[in-house]
Amino acid sequence: MIKNESISLQDCVVQGKGNIVSDMGGEKVMLNVQNGKYYNLGEIGGKIWDCMEAPVSIGQLVTTLMLEYDVDQTECQQHVISFIAHMAEEGLVQIGVEGHRE
């Protein structure tokens, strides 16, 4: 189990393999082929997912979202880290990968 405290803004994250993702009414939905579970990422979760196509730092994800949405930095950081932690627990993303560009 991954805890939020172990994830920092400097960590890099990238989409995991084996997921089928589709747009439905402005929201992203995903089927994880390995575990057979469906996930509704929502609009903002879908934006985060798209940003993770290539390795990216969590700090850069926060910056990207703050430019697009009217959100407080601390609140944005907390929500992004929580979202990434949940996705990591489900095996949907890889954290700590190298090669991100800021």
Rank of each mutant, 00 (worst) to 15 (best):
M1L: 03
I2W: 14
I2R: 12
K3H: 09
S6C: 04
I7H: 00
I7T: 01
Q10C: 00
D11N: 10
C12K: 06
V13R: 00
V13G: 02
Q15H: 00
N19T: 14
V21F: 01
S22I: 13
D23S: 07
M24R: 14
G25F: 08
G25D: 06
G26H: 07
E27D: 05
E27S: 10
E27I: 10
K28H: 02
K28I: 09
K28C: 02
V29R: 13
V29A: 02
V29C: 01
M30I: 02
M30K: 07
L31S: 03
L31C: 01
L31R: 02
N32M: 04
N32A: 10
V33A: 10
V33D: 07
Q34D: 09
Q34Y: 12
Q34F: 08
N35K: 08
Y38I: 04
Y38C: 08
Y39P: 04
L41Y: 12
L41S: 02
G42I: 06
G42T: 10
E43K: 15
E43A: 15
I44P: 04
G45P: 05
G45H: 11
G45T: 08
I48F: 05
I48Q: 10
W49P: 04
W49L: 06
D50L: 08
C51W: 13
M52A: 11
M52H: 08
M52G: 08
M52E: 05
E53V: 11
A54V: 08
A54S: 15
A54P: 00
P55T: 12
V56L: 08
I58N: 06
L61Y: 08
L61M: 10
V62G: 07
T63K: 15
T63A: 12
T64P: 03
L65Y: 12
M66N: 11
L67A: 14
L67G: 14
E68W: 09
E68S: 13
E68G: 06
E68A: 14
E68I: 12
Y69G: 05
Y69H: 15
Y69F: 14
D70I: 12
D70L: 10
V71A: 10
V71T: 14
D72R: 11
Q73N: 11
Q73Y: 15
T74W: 12
C76I: 00
Q77V: 13
Q77L: 02
Q77K: 13
H79P: 00
V80P: 06
V80C: 02
V80Q: 03
V80F: 04
I84Q: 04
I84S: 01
I84A: 00
I84D: 01
A85R: 15
H86L: 10
H86W: 13
M87A: 12
A88D: 08
A88N: 10
E89D: 15
E89R: 15
E89F: 05
L92Q: 01
L92W: 05
Q94G: 03
I95M: 03
I95K: 07
I95V: 15
E98A: 12
G99T: 05
G99H: 03
